[in-house]
Amino acid sequence: MLRALSLLLLLAALPLPASAQLSAEEMKALLGRIDDRQRNTGDYKALAYIEQREKNKNDVFFETVFYRRDNSEQFLILFLKPKTEAGKGYLRIEKNLWMYDPATGKWERRTERERIGGTNSRSQDFDPLYLARDFEHEYKGKEKLGQFDVHHIKLTLKPGAKAPDPIIELWIDEKTENTLKQQDFALSGRLMRTAYYPKWEKVFSESKKAEVYYPKEIRIFDEVEKENRTTVLIDKVDLRPLEPNIFTKAWLEAKSR
């Protein structure tokens, strides 16, 4: 479920003024601001732990580093631990998804259907969402999520727009304006996934000259295979510029060989 990692890039939020109920305009403005944060310029590097528990399978646990250069369609996931995984990587450059395994020294071109690292994540999960531009919005009401007051918003993908899921529901904390819960639905209306974002951190970005928010912890529950769940913990985020040639095969080969 590295899908959650992409949200780190998407949900760098600025605080919004609190309100009891959101009008259509306020709701669209909120989503527009989230879209703006998604287009945050600059480089991004995060050290993350990912745990996946699946029915009838061994639990897998990774320590990874995720690199991304905004305003480009490039990302690199480098696996650090466990040691059998060290040096393996996925490199996406535009529409090309490459997998590298230092044990064979070979690059394999993979399709968009590839399960990244054997998890439930696909390459398209890493594409940014444009909530205001690509979705129709519906305010479902003000609700309670545990001790928190939240706005519940339903988003439906517009015809012709592209996103991993056609229907999304968000629960956004009134006070901090952070997304606390997200549910993804299939076109049929079937609930596919529920994700929780209980902790957020903000860090100052030199390139953006503003703070960037990212979820410190992401808990994803598969609603189809009910026993499957994924946890992502972002240990550290580094927003300083990355090496210019980091999104190349040569860089990963040199580092992991």
């Binding site: 928190f148 904390d173 951190e201």
Partner: peptide, 8 residues
């Protein structure tokens, strides 16, 4: 929910 951190 929220806290401030330094870039690492």
């Amino acid at each position: 929910i929220e806290r401030q951190v330094e870039t690492a």
